[in-house]
Write a protein that binds this DNA or RNA. Structure first.
Lengths: 343, 343
DNA sequence: TCCATTCATGAAAACATTTGCAAAATTATT
DNA sequence: AATAATTTTGCAAATGTTTTCATGAATGGA
């Protein structure tokens, strides 16, 4: 007859059973050193017996941190974002934060809506992917007092502190690599750049580097291919079946490059002897594929980790602004590219 | 002089500016049809001008749904979990839910801690990955009133409604496929099964099917390899460099199979002529790899979607228990396997 | 124009906590 | 043993909402 009909256990019922006031129970959780050992024991027993679980919502309305961080990514379907989210999540979990995760599928309107929802949940901080966002998004964050960072890309003039790699240098690196190997007939395969500043930056850096070197890429060698191995395989095959063939293909990311590798194989070409193929990203598996992919490493794990560190310390330490950090991309020369005229 | 020192905007300040009571503002959001059009306009203006954002924490303590669903996965680092999470998240987002995501890295203790934290946030529902969990986890969920489902695996006698594929049949399918092709000298490469009921089920189903057919797998052909292309490539290479060589390798998932494919190539063997290799999962890219991988398709997108549907409707419709659903795995015969003695 | 409806709004209680302040209990000091 | 200092606890107000109930304002029918 004791528990009256499904009564949710709250701090009051715990207090009653432990014969103390609710305040003391609250203190037991938040400032245990302020409550006497024996009382602590009593409360602990009561908590355990009733299976009490604190209600963070009730804490949160007191202006106490919610313990959540909002993470907004374009999609998780790309292994690389999953990796960065995983590492971010692990890092902040150590500081007691849980992540609220949502993806917008490269739709800026949706990003705004998601952000609003996260703010309704009173997240303690916000992580956005990439540098470019709708102005409304920035304004909304500006109007809040929580810290916010841009993850994945880096630029020192970004609207918020950014932690990631500079995609311009990534693009330039790979283009220079191929140029230095004597390639002049170069095709490019990039994902649609709309709403995707990473791809945009890589692409324009590649083109600029080539142009500066006096190399121009004919229109029909500029492929726009969605992020998919099968599509890039198909497009590559089509490209390579023409009479005029490039000696190298620069792909906007490793997925496209993987498809390109398969496409080259399907076209009966040997990589790198007949054609060089490069990626950007250095995804899991890129080093193991045959032939191992020459690419630019974007250190996803490190980026997620550093971002988690920066944001959680900005939260814990209010007033301190998180600082940006450039996680430098690195050229990984492997077997899918080689000098043009040698051998 | 109007806004006194950084005062957070709340429903009261909005009400004041709109010259109505807080109750009316609350109604404006929750039952707009109950407030007069002109008043609605006035409130809208006030909301916009002050940049008011509702506080879900304050709503939640009224027993109103938090609008969050807790999702616990072993890791996001496996593309396949990222895929299922993505599709789950998209589905529930349509119903207005946001996901709280965390991963435990196959550590049951951590899973319990994560679950607790999510309950503190008063999630409206819980999704766990796989069938097997610490008993404390189940008991904790039992003590709550929120719906909960097990995603990824299916079993009709699972502790909670499960939505996913039956890994036993997946394992049996692939073993039968190879047997039906005349293979008798079969090696197995599986990830560590500890804390991983998926792998466990697949492995035991494979072994059982083989044993039933009178085929036994010698110990040194039973490889335990962590989820990594490079490790499985290395282990495969080692295996294939022995004098006794299997005619087929059954891999516990497509990542291992991918590594095995590379390993076979590195050992100078042709797949499927010299050796057949199979995976389980049908990950993105498995159909495009050369040679295209024979595997068992676990429909990740569908699983995530169905799970999202089931859970959100169980939440919206309290009292209704979500029902389990078997998303059948499907044998995908491609080019990495072929009959033994023919041709 | 008056009364009965219906509609729109506000007052106040409720939700599950935290916290500043003061009272009570304990311990230390003389 | 009496007082002072310190530790532990409870009271009550506060947090940002929602919701029930009651009241006042419009509207319709006679």
């Amino acid at each position: 007859m004791f528990d009256k009909k499904k009564k949710q256990v709250d701090i009051i019922s715990v207090a009653k059973a432990a014969n103390v006031s609710p305040s003391t129970v609250s203190r037991y959780f938040n400032h245990p050193e302020l409550v006497k050992l024996v009382t602590r024991r009593r409360i602990e027993t009561s908590v355990r017996k009733q299976g009490y679980i604190r209600n963070r919502a009730a804490q949160t309305i007191h202006g106490i941190r919610s313990g959540t961080i909002g993470v907004i990514v374009p999609t998780l379907d790309h292994a690389i974002f999953a990796e960065v989210v995983q590492s971010f999540s692990d890092t902040v979990a150590e500081q007691g934060f849980t992540i609220l995760l949502a993806s917008h599928g490269y739709d800026q309107q949706r990003e705004y809506a998601i952000l609003r929802k996260m703010l309704e949940h009173r997240v303690d901080g916000i992580v956005l992917t990439g540098l470019d966002h709708d102005d409304a998004v920035f304004r909304l964050i500006d109007s809040q007092t929580i810290p916010s960072i841009l993850m994945w890309n880096y630029a020192d003039d970004a609207r918020y502190p950014s932690i990631g790699s500079d995609n311009n240098s990534a693009g330039a690196m790979i283009a220079e690599h191929l140029l230095s190997h004597g390639h002049r007939d170069i095709a490019c395969m990039f994902p649609p750049t709309r709403g995707n500043d990473r791809a945009q930056a890589r692409f324009s850096a590649v083109m600029e580097t080539l142009t500066d070197a006096g190399v121009s890429v004919p229109d029909h060698w500029q492929l726009t291919t969605v992020y998919s191995i099968s599509d890039s395989k198909r497009d590559t095959l089509k490209l390579l079946n023409r009479t005029d063939r490039p000696t190298a293909i620069i792909c906007g990311n490793d997925i496209l490059a993987t498809g390109a590798l398969y496409g080259a194989a399907a076209a009966g070409l040997r990589v790198p002897d007949d054609i060089s193929i490069t990626g950007i990203g250095d995804f899991k598996g890129s080093a193991e594929i045959e032939p191992a992919l020459t690419t630019v490493r974007i250190p996803a794990k490190r980026i997620g980790h550093e971002a988690g560190l920066a944001l959680s310390s900005a939260i814990i330490n209010p007033g301190s602004v998180p600082t940006g950090l450039h996680c430098k991309p690195k050229l990984m020369i492997r077997s899918s590219s080689k000098p043009l005229h040698r051998e």
